[in-house]
Design a protein around this nucleic acid. Structure first.
Lengths: 228, 228
DNA sequence: GTTCGCCAAACTGTCGACAGTCGACAGATT
DNA sequence: AATCTGTCGACTGTCGACAGTTTGGCGAAC
């Protein structure tokens, strides 16, 4: 495995699709704010920097466009997606829509296996929350929510969630920090688990509404500070 | 000036790039069953047939992949998406999830303008339902549901709906016919309108659950007959 | 008759190149 | 001084070509 930050250092990269590698590089660069929101990306320059031709760069860019990390203007090229407060609200509203549905579907056939798996994941999140690896916290959080949706049994629903996952990473990265309080994260997720274990759809809905609402308010407030 | 970027009244100079044209061609070919589900598509052959090079064909294929009309296997190429009953169920379940949410959001600020627009669309659907242009029926139906979601005011939600729209067209085309009874279509949509106009979230949910449920059962049953 | 291995054909992944188009800048004009 | 216009540079859209891989068929071995 070669270094992850640069693709075309000195060794030529093989085997894995160039498209995927370029896509990973671009994703990382966008998430880590190496490219500013709204910045224009030149295909030729990217190809030069990464030591590949324009074809894989174009395909990777199109892939990231479909994931909402880039936007393209005809004959002008690709730009890093810039999110405003309204778009952010929409994303979290859609997330709420998907997770509500998943919780409702899941509470119907919740069992010990699923509960155990989710419980272990929350424990992992608690461990990570103590440290200062911010991106790891985000990823483990997303893993939990993805598990909930996966357990709901609708693969197309899971795909829809994966689609907005990249946008979630982007907007969380934009405000530069996760939830301030580590305890609040864990308790919030324990509440989701309790609601599922209770078997009551009403409690599930309350729990997920509260959970997503807090996350949305936090991010929207954060983006407001960033802009202002 | 009334038309600064237009020549004449409605003729806008727009040179559609080859990618879009190829994408449209492929979409039409897939929807109209010109390509069988699961069939492998050769980039070179498509390029030859369409008189273009492989680059636009590849990009168009990638676009259709992101829309769920094609699937790609590394180093093997693109295949026409084949849907089974389970995937079909998942798609309609996700559609229900999205439309429920949109109805709930929309019923909050439903007004005469929106009601009028939706009413006119249903009337268009009634006119079309009398004829035998099947694809037109499907399109006008989708227009109605898209309007509902657009009126809900969440653009990301609308994008999620647009994403599954292509898959909906595909699976409706697979069973080869729309709802048998023209009257049932119109009444079913009038019910949705009445529910929205009533302002009661409960009635909205009932109406959309019934509406999508009927459509799903119809399609799932249809695909069962096709396979069996 | 079946299975394995090899070979040729076709295909995908990637590359470099060309042409048309867009935006910026300098010069001309009012 | 401000605006219009012509030119220039850079970039995207598209193309044809090459290399490595996959595929399907044919023949040999069991």
């Amino acid at each position: 495995m070669s270094s992850s930050n640069a693709i075309g250092d000195s060794t030529v990269i093989q085997q894995r699709n160039l498209v995927e590698q370029v896509a990973d590089y671009l994703t990382q660069a966008i998430i880590s704010q190496k490219f500013a929101p709204g910045e224009r990306l030149s295909e030729v320059q990217l190809a030069r920097d990464l030591g590949v031709s324009r074809a894989p760069v174009r395909e990777a860019a199109r892939l990231l466009e479909s994931r909402g990390l880039l936007v393209s203007q005809p004959r002008r090229g690709f730009f890093v997606r810039a999110l405003d407060a309204a778009e952010l609200n929409d994303i979290f509203d859609l997330r709420l829509c998907l997770e509500r549905h998943a919780m409702a579907r899941l509470v119907g056939d919740f069992d010990a296996d699923k509960e155990g798996a989710l419980r272990r994941q929350v424990e992992v999140m608690c461990e990570v929350a103590a440290g200062d690896n911010e991106s790891r916290k985000i990823e483990e959080d997303l893993v939990f929510h993805r598990m909930v949706i996966a357990f709901a049994g609708n693969r197309r629903l899971l795909k829809a969630f994966d689609d907005i996952t990249h946008e979630l990473r982007l907007c969380i990265a934009l405000i530069g920090k996760t939830h301030a309080d580590p305890d609040s994260i864990s308790t919030s997720h324990w509440l989701l688990l309790d609601a599922l274990a209770s078997g009551e759809p009403g409690r599930c809905r309350e729990a997920i509404d509260y959970h997503i609402g807090v996350a949305r308010d936090y991010v929207v407030q954060g983006i407001g500070e960033t802009v202002a």
